[in-house]
Amino acid sequence: MSSITILMTLQNLAGVLTLAGAIIVVAVVIFVISSTSREEDKDAAKHKVYSVRTRYFFGLCLVLIVGLFISLRLLPYPRANAVADETVSIVGVQWFWKMANGERTTGPVEFVGTNEVTVPAKKNLKFVVTSADVNHSFGIYNSKGVLVTQTQAMPQYNNVLYHQFDEPGEYYVVCMEYCGQTHSYMVGKIHVQ
């Protein structure tokens, strides 16, 4: 499965899981309210609830541990042994992106780059992301409007993001961290060939 497909699945999964969770919570609330039409001895009622609680406690712990085990293997962070086919330097500036192929050899302020960059498809790309002024966030959307990946662009730090574009086409860079007046127009383009 390509990385984008996994991500789309995860975003949809977030919606489905939350909807399912909300339905369960609402169902419990309705059940609890409807139960008050009949009185039961408080100790007997508590005993029933607490016996469910014990099972719930162990069930929840199990779900969380399994969830941690699976999800912590799908981290977006670079692996120690990661090898890049190509490097792309990214610098966020109020309110545009400076992007260029290759390693950055100057400081972020002096760095020269453009709002558009061309990169190859099916190659492992290393994005070295920083900022020349305030915090920005380097978010990449595909042409369908799916937020594919992102990392913060922070002054004084290089955030390294590895990403492979499986599909050629137009990708859109959007600043995902509020950075001042025209933040919502701080956009760029990545042409994937």
């Binding site: 799908l74 981290l75 995902m176």
Partner: peptide
Amino acid sequence: LVDTTIAINVGLHNT
């Protein structure tokens, strides 16, 4: 809780 999963957060962070 869903959003505190790092793997999901990458697609939802600051949305």
